[in-house]
């Protein structure tokens, strides 16, 4: 490989890398604008018509508060084909103070931190009924691994 040939090759290679990165960044911007994830709000105002569930993380349990004020712990269910808004925060429990948790539902591409003293909201819309697993993915103490369960998506 002569010097000139090598230099040209480097220029072509870097141009290709920059083109790929630029298109990825643009796609990222478009997708982000459409589906914002984990938005911090002090006084959450969920979008109208959304099915709002307040999620409270404690050491080491997820508590879900439905719109009709019933609660469930460790598992929850949501209606299919409807916009769901989760408003997530972290609270102290008898085990200890409110610490940082992270609610993660892999199949819904939903991930949101539960930060003490802060409300993070996230919106998604399940399109298939079934059972989906969720888990805590921010280390939160001794029984961190037990903060997991199933979300049931049921017909309306």
């Amino acid at each position: 490989m002569s010097d000139k040939k090598g230099r040209n090759l480097e220029i072509y290679f870097m141009a290709a890398v920059i083109v790929i990165l630029f298109s990825s960044a643009v796609m990222n911007y478009v997708e982000m604008s459409e589906h914002p994830n984990a938005v911090a709000t002090d006084a959450p105002t969920p979008p109208a018509g959304s099915y709002v569930i307040h999620v409270v993380a404690t050491q080491w349990e997820w508590t879900f508060i439905y719109p009709n004020n019933t609660t469930s712990a460790g598992a929850f269910s949501v209606p299919v084909n409807r916009e769901i808004t989760l408003i997530v925060t972290s609270m102290p429990s008898e085990q200890g103070p409110g610490v940082i948790h992270d609610l993660y539902i892999p199949q819904m591409d939903v991930q949101v931190y539960a930060v003490p003293g802060q409300n993070n909201s996230v919106t998604f819309e399940p399109t298939h009924t079934g059972s989906y697993y969720f888990e805590c993915v921010e280390y939160c103490g001794e029984y961190h691994y037990e903060m997991r369960g199933y979300m049931e998506v049921v017909a309306q």
Binding site: M14, L21, A25, N28, N37, A40, Y113
Partner: peptide
């Protein structure tokens, strides 16, 4: 910290710089 509630502007900034660091 993308999912911690940093907000749109910060996340956009950090994700764009993260693409740049590949160069």
């Amino acid at each position: 910290l993308f999912n911690s509630g940093l907000g749109f502007a910060w996340v956009l900034f950090f994700s764009t710089t993260s693409f740049l660091v590949v160069i």
